[in-house]
Amino acid sequence: MDIPILTPQLHQPKTSVGESYLRFQLNEDTPAVLLMKYVQEVLIISTGRITPIPNMPECILGLFNRRNRIFWAIDLAFMLTSQPVDASSQQYHVMIIRVGETPLSLIVREIKGTIRLVSDLQPLEEGTATIQPYLQGYIWQHQEKLLVLNAEAIVHSPSLYNY
């Protein structure tokens, strides 16, 4: 059997040019990136740690505690695509972002890692209305269409405050 991935080149020098982005899967088939400078921390928590809060918008899953601080847990996928994150999974991949003074924890399907991209951001075409306000554009890389999310837009999303 041919297993090339099992023997990686550990000290392969890599190009370190461009902006640093955090790469993640919004849902099964939607990769997305977020500028690293907004990201404070990523973590993986079990679903049980999130306490559901009643009378909140559907995208807010609840509250959870991290190092004596309380964070709102936002289902980013639901907020952007109205499709809830995979509920059968026992773990949530969480990224804590901070825009200005507002910290917010976003739950995504999977955090992939960091990626450096030379910003040849392309504008969005019309059509995807719900996701539109939160996007800066997209970047093509390795035949993948990476959505570049706008952190400020997410933080100030009306769906978080409209209730």
């Binding site: 640093s20 400078k37 992939k112």
Partner: peptide, 29 residues
């Protein structure tokens, strides 16, 4: 992976001094 990401975040936050560390963190990731 998560730790590597966090490390790189921390490194980025450190600014220019953490640049090398960020690279290492990225490699780890």
């Amino acid at each position: 992976n998560v730790l590597a990401i966090n490390a790189s975040i921390e490194a980025n936050r450190a600014g220019e001094e953490g640049r090398g560390f960020a690279l290492v963190a990225e490699e780890i990731g």
